[in-house]
Design a protein around this nucleic acid. Structure first.
Ligand SMILES: [Zn+2]
Ligand SMILES: [Zn+2]
Lengths: 262, 262
DNA sequence: TATTCCGATAGTGAC
DNA sequence: GTCACTATCGGAATGAG
């Protein structure tokens, strides 16, 4: 088994990896990323074999034996929400001031946790990132890591919604028909390899590579630009992180570290 | 005094730097390069103030109060030859088998020591490199070092000869007049900034930079190419060095190290 | 193409 | 866009007063 298939072992035998697996049921695993790029960085991993090797930008535009793309999207949405809840519950427990932090945690869940996918995953099993936007982690080691979460290389889960995709498609074919040069007949075909009737997410690896490598490093909090100076970005992110979490009662920097194994 | 002017201190007060200065007279210093890029790497440094800051590719195409460019060339030629002699005498002493090595040393002097200049010197005082072609030295640390001695960035002393330059010019103006678009009136003017009547040595820093950075690493002995793999080149050069000097009686690798201070 | 230090960039190997 | 290792490549400082 290649490194690209590490998640397959978890899918096949989650009980063997109890240290890693935070939640499991028949549909998904939710695990803590082993190399978290932020204070909390979870992964939602669908288990179905017919789904696990479909590209994340295409997975909800197909139909499956067990469910349609739409149904799968709704299903995964539930677990994405669950992962977010697990994150704030974990932080709530850590801070140990539930009453004082209730509002701030609710805001953090909505404003400061992003869920989505990488346009070019390196690990072959379908997985969805759920990650706080502090990017405070020793494991965040280079521009590639950072820009994979902060540029269009990262596609929000919301943008994968096949319903909004269809609406987008309709809009284009109505008002801006000339912009849509694709075969609408194949739009809902689960057999078709053609996913181009949906929202246009960049798939060209050369272009995506360029995005990762040439997009200047930019603070997600304040927009400050650091060019290629990754160390300076890291230093700045640490300061932003300290400011951000200072809003929570019971925050201690030494305790609020990136998620690790139990 | 900036690092770019280190040689000026030697010129001004050679007796203060007896450890470095191998030879001095009123015209030049001959020193062992402090960061030798080969087993023997000496520098010939003219002392005259009116000469020391002239660009090496132009220095023999001007006239001076003390001498014409031609005369200066002949003068420096003498010291270049002297430096080569010092190198083989040093090796002769080290090997300690003068009779057996006489012929091989004579050949080494002619075939294996190059003298010349860098097209873009980093140190401001005019200096001529006299260097064995083994490039066996810990101080040879990167492609820039190596390619500065093995590409057209390095211009042989012979190619600076103003007499051959003039012959070249004449030839071009006769047989290939159209290739010479320059003002021949300024050819011998010591005041002119125009050195273009002489052999065309590349002076464009962008082009020279490209030569240094993009020329694939290539063994000077056998032509083997190593691309950008500097460590592999180094390993190969060590093997070539061992073969090369094995021809000398009394050769011991541990003793034949790059020149150092006394 | 002075060196040195540091950091960014690039290639590889992983079973 | 898996990590970890190595090596290559790239910019900045360097002094003196
Ligand atoms: Zn900021
Ligand atoms: Zn060779």
């Amino acid at each position: 088994m290649s490194f690209q298939d590490v998640f397959q072992a978890y899918i096949d035998n989650p009980s063997k990896y109890k240290q890693l697996v935070e939640f499991e049921d028949e549909n998904v695993l939710i695990i803590k990323d082993q190399f978290p790029k932020a204070i909390r960085h979870y992964l939602v991993i669908p288990r179905a074999p017919e789904v696990t090797h479909v590209h994340p930008l295409e997975v909800f535009n197909r139909n499956y034996k067990k469910y349609s793309g739409d149904e799968l999207y709704d299903l995964i949405s539930f677990y994405i929400e669950k992962a977010k809840t697990m994150i704030i519950e974990d932080l709530d427990k850590l801070f140990d001031h539930p009453k004082e932090n209730k509002l701030a945690l609710a805001e953090l869940k909505v404003d400061f946790i992003r869920a989505g996918v990488h346009s070019v995953p390196s690990l072959r099993n379908l997985h969805f990132h759920v990650i706080t936007q502090d990017f405070e982690s020793e494991r965040l080691k280079n521009k590639k890591h950072y820009n994979s979460f902060t540029t269009p290389f990262f596609v929000d889960f919301d943008k994968l919604d096949p319903w909004s995709n269809k609406a987008y498609d309709k809009l284009n074919r109505g008002g801006f028909g000339s912009e849509n040069q694709y075969d609408s007949d194949s739009a809902y075909s689960s057999e078709s390899e053609d996913d181009r009737v949906f929202i246009r997410h960049e798939r060209d690896k050369t272009i995506l590579d360029k995005i990762i490598k040439t997009t200047p490093l930019k603070c997600t909090y304040c927009g400050a630009v650091f060019g290629n100076k990754f160390q300076e970005l890291k230093q700045h992110l640490k300061e932003e992180y300290l400011k951000k979490y200072a809003l929570f009662d019971g925050f201690e920097p030494a305790k609020l570290t990136p998620n690790q194994f139990k």
